[in-house]
Design a protein around this nucleic acid. Structure first.
Lengths: 210, 210
DNA sequence: CGCTTATGGATACTGATACTATCCATCACA
DNA sequence: TGTGATGGATAGTATCAGTATCCATAAGCG
């Protein structure tokens, strides 16, 4: 495949493909002469993955790059690969909550994790986000929602179980890693849109008339 | 409160507050003289909400504005307000999936909605995203995940139930609307970080050794 | 063989977003 | 009375995600 055909096959404009090549999201094609390269099926698949992450899941280009790098390092233990992807996915927190709100939230979150028996490291990136979110919800007067944190965790565990099931039948380790990462990221988009639909439906039922 | 005190109270820099005022995210303070305004507690709360949406939930400024406008229009039926917020929250899709993949995804999604008895309008913004996501997952060879769509929907309904419960005890309609919107948006951040934690824990258990 | 088109690679430009910075003519208040 | 903050306006900045342009070369067609 030449670049034009790759573009046609995926619907991604040639200049954009060139941009991804420049940024190292997409590996270079095989050069047959100084200005002629050929791309294979792997390129097309990779490109489709890139677009899904960027368009659908709104993952920034730099983050996509990190994620792909972690996917490509198949010497690394799977758990490490996933951790890297998680880290790339979690924006470094900008503190904003007051200290007391954070303290209360930290306690609640630690208790939740202990109660669930989750084994997460203290510096897990998602931990800070969770604490900040709980603190924010409290600060915004939404303790009604925070009170159900445990129920949220219940439902979330359900997702995780679904995903494990949908993913562990992958034959090779590379495919497994890819599935986990795709599942993590596009799964979020999936859940978000399902949630919006469910809400719309409920809202229509409950509040048709004010 | 003068603007400096508002800044101190919320941790938001003065120039940023001025920017939000310019953009119409924050209503102007009460002018006592041409260059002296006073801000109340409502401003502080509003500002904290703005920051939570922008920092934590990564909602674009323009979208925050739309959402706040819908919150402030308390003549509108609640269901309409929520619909407006949903629309603001859903980026207008740029099509990318192939026609056949979209067709298959559309069928699967319609069946899901019918089976669940959800009442969603055909032009619901989240519907397009869901279809695109399902199509993308298929295209990326993740039919293992798509096969469990129904289980995802199950878990999602669980969230919705939790939220309804945590939210309907709000006394006034305005507070109810605010809770729903905050719950929708920060709830997503909450779910996302919980999911990452649950995954990390599972991944540690299952794949410690490659 | 010649001509049009496509290509790889490099560099420059663009539009959107979210702030920051600067100015200035007031005002508050010590 | 003068030092610092304020409201309002305008301008500047950094980052991001592409687009556009150039050029020398290569491919495919007639």
């Amino acid at each position: 495949m030449r670049i034009g055909e790759l573009s046609k096959a995926t619907g991604v404009p040639v200049p954009t493909i060139k941009y991804y090549l420049r940024e190292g999201l997409l590996p270079a094609g095989e050069l047959s002469s100084p200005n002629q390269a050929s791309y294979g099926d792997a390129h097309a698949r990779r490109l489709r993955l890139i677009r899904a992450l960027i368009e659908l899941a709104q993952v920034p280009v730099a983050t996509v790059k990190e994620i792909l790098e972690s996917l490509d390092s198949d010497t690394e233990p799977l758990h490490e690969q996933i951790g890297r992807a998680h880290r790339a996915l979690t924006p470094t927190r900008r503190l904003s909550a007051t200290d007391e709100a954070r303290a209360a939230a930290t306690t609640q979150v630690s208790e939740l994790i202990a109660a669930r028996g989750w084994s997460v490291e203290a510096d897990a990136p998602a931990l800070a986000t969770l604490v900040d979110t709980v603190a924010a919800l409290r600060t915004l007067g939404q303790e009604g929602l925070v009170a159900h944190l445990d129920d949220y965790a219940d439902a979330v565990e359900r997702f995780t179980r679904i995903e494990i099931e949908g993913v562990t039948k992958n034959p090779t380790r590379d495919q497994l890693a890819e599935s986990v990462v795709i599942g993590t990221i596009l799964g979020e988009t999936l859940i978000a849109s399902l949630r919006l639909l469910a809400q719309e439906s409920i809202s229509a039922d409950l509040w048709k008339n004010r």
